[in-house]
Simulated scan of single mutants.
Amino acid sequence: MMRKLLVALAFAVLAVVAVLGWMRPREAVSPAPPTATPTPAPTATLSGKDRLAAAVAVAFKDGRARTDEGGQRYTFDDDKLVDTPFGPVLISEGSVVDPGHASAGRIDIAYLRPEGNGFTLVRNYPAAAIAGSFGRLSGWQVDDRFADMPTLRTEGGFTGQGITCSAVVLTELRPTGPVEMAQVPIGVDNTGSALPGADDSVEGSFTDIRRNQGFAVRYSGSKAFTDRWERKGDRYVPIGPSQVPEC
Rank of each mutant, 00 (worst) to 15 (best):
S47V: 12
S47N: 09
S47W: 03
G48F: 04
K49W: 00
K49G: 00
K49T: 11
D50L: 06
D50W: 00
L52R: 02
A53S: 14
A53Q: 13
A54D: 11
V56I: 15
V58L: 07
V58C: 02
A59N: 06
K61A: 15
K61G: 05
D62R: 15
D62S: 15
D62Y: 07
R66E: 12
R66A: 15
R66C: 00
R66P: 00
T67Q: 15
D68K: 10
D68S: 06
D68H: 07
E69S: 15
E69V: 11
E69F: 08
G70F: 09
R73G: 10
T75M: 12
F76H: 07
F76D: 07
F76W: 06
D77R: 14
D78Q: 14
D79F: 15
D79G: 01
D79R: 02
K80C: 03
L81D: 10
D83H: 07
D83L: 12
D83T: 12
D83G: 04
G87M: 04
V89W: 01
L90E: 10
I91E: 10
E93C: 05
G94H: 11
V96C: 04
H101E: 13
S103Q: 06
S103C: 11
G105K: 08
G105M: 09
R106I: 12
I109S: 08
A110F: 04
A110V: 05
Y111S: 04
R113W: 01
R113N: 13
P114F: 01
G116H: 00
G116Y: 01
N117M: 12
G118S: 06
F119V: 02
F119M: 01
T120M: 10
L121V: 05
V122Q: 13
P126G: 02
P126C: 10
P126E: 09
A127W: 10
I130Y: 00
I130S: 13
I130G: 01
A131H: 03
G132Y: 03
S133Y: 03
F134A: 10
L137C: 06
L137T: 05
S138K: 08
G139T: 09
G139F: 05
V142A: 07
D143F: 05
D144Q: 14
R145L: 03
A147G: 13
D148I: 00
M149E: 15
P150I: 03
P150N: 05
T151V: 15
T154M: 11
E155F: 10
E155I: 13
E155S: 13
E155W: 03
G156V: 08
G157K: 05
G157N: 02
T159W: 03
T159Q: 04
Q161E: 09
Q161V: 00
G162E: 03
I163C: 02
S166E: 11
S166K: 14
S166M: 08
V168P: 04
V168M: 09
T171W: 06
T171N: 10
T171F: 03
E172C: 03
E172D: 11
L173R: 04
L173M: 11
R174N: 11
P175E: 03
P175T: 04
T176E: 15
G177W: 01
G177L: 01
G177M: 04
P178S: 09
E180Q: 15
E180D: 12
M181T: 00
A182D: 06
A182H: 12
Q183M: 12
V184M: 10
V184W: 10
I186K: 11
